[in-house]
């Protein structure tokens, strides 16, 4: 655990430095809110507290890291985690939340999940007097949402994309999870950026990425699109709101020999970062979130809240855009190299 902590601290310092150097537009606010969250997390205590930790699933790198980090952080701060994993099944998610509310924990932290499905139950938790915090869920019933700055992520990824393709050409977009807030924000940012590049076109109809079998499905869909647009240059880039469809799309491009097309995604899954690092791979950029840091931040916020502090509406944890030029630095800084 102390090793983890050290790595965390090291990574934090490095990331702060890195994002400052990068000069992202939102860097100022990110660092400010980020530092305050980190500083307090170290002081907080959850001794004798039972913290409900509910996740939509743990089948992706992102949610597994964030989930485990929360459990460890609760234990580190002396509390008892009640952790439930819905395995990406909405019915199970709701049942678990319902039972969790009956267990009357000192707080509930919800990680991901479709807003319309979980929102009524987050409200029921609040009605039952249980503080609710969230990670990557923009619910009005959440006291504090720890999240990556998805506006920044969306904008950075979109700018990288249009600059890579020289501000013109067709792009293929996976937009299957507009109901999931972070995905919606990233997509909206793409649309906002593309609006000012009239020669960039989002091909219609947009593709729907699916869970489960995301990779195979993306592979199939992209293979079909490539058959529909056989000419080189007729498609310039493929965008998805996370990087598992990007993985399938990249594989499909490699299989079809259409490596002139570039792929873009978000989450920093190790296998995708590896592809970005491969000069021959069409994977052009992946914005890496720091899931472990998100989990620790949320639990730190719980400790602050239970200690009587007032929390900001959102706590932003910095994200790192990895492209062909800097991917090795980013993976090193994320500690997953």
């Amino acid at each position: 655990m102390s090793k983890n902590e050290e790595r965390g601290l090291f990574a934090r310092r490095e990331i702060l430095k890195w994002s400052a150097v990068a000069g992202v537009a939102v860097a100022g606010t990110t660092i400010l809110s980020g530092t305050s969250a980190f500083a307090s997390a170290a002081e907080g205590s959850l001794k004798g507290k039972r913290i409900g930790i509910s996740t939509a699933g743990t089948d992706h790198f992102f949610d597994l890291q964030a989930y485990n980090a929360q459990i460890e952080e609760v234990k580190r701060l002396g509390g008892e985690p009640i952790a439930v994993d819905a395995g990406r099944n909405d019915g199970k998610l709701v049942s678990q939340l319902q039972t969790l509310i009956a267990q009357k924990p000192d707080a509930i932290v919800q990680l991901l999940g479709t807003l319309t499905v979980i929102d009524p139950w987050l409200k029921k938790a609040r009605d039952a007097g249980i503080p609710v915090l969230t990670i990557d869920v923009g619910s009005t019933h959440s006291l504090n949402n720890s999240t990556s700055d998805n506006w920044g992520i969306g904008k950075d990824l979109a700018l990288q994309l249009v600059s890579d393709i020289g501000g013109e050409g067709n792009i293929v977009v996976f937009n299957g999870f507009y109901g999931v807030t972070p995905c919606a924000i990233r997509y909206d940012q793409l649309v906002n950026v593309v609006k000012y590049f009239p020669k960039v076109k989002i091909l219609q109809p947009e593709l729907r990425d699916v869970i489960p079998n995301t990779v195979q499905d993306a592979f199939t869909q992209i293979t079909a699109i490539l058959n529909k647009y056989p000419e080189k240059g007729s498609i310039k880039a493929i965008w998805s709101a996370w990087d598992i469809p990007q993985l399938g799309a990249t594989q499909a491009l490699a299989a079809a020999g259409r490596t002139e097309i570039r792929t873009y995604g978000v989450d920093g899954s190790p296998e995708v970062l590896q592809l970005v690092a491969d000069p021959a791979s069409p994977a052009a950029a992946d914005v890496a979130q720091q899931p472990g840091e998100l989990g620790r931040t949320a639990i730190g916020n719980v400790a602050r809240l239970l200690a009587g502090e007032t929390l900001p509406r959102e706590t932003y944890v910095p994200a790192l855009l990895a492209n062909k030029a800097n991917v090795n630095d980013v993976t090193k800084k994320l500690g997953i190299g």
Partner: peptide, 16 residues
């Protein structure tokens, strides 16, 4: 019943 429980229709019914 499922629409009422999940506040809408969701994917993954086959899991059941």
């Amino acid at each position: 019943l499922s629409v009422s429980y999940l506040s809408g229709s969701t994917t993954g019914a086959g899991d059941l």
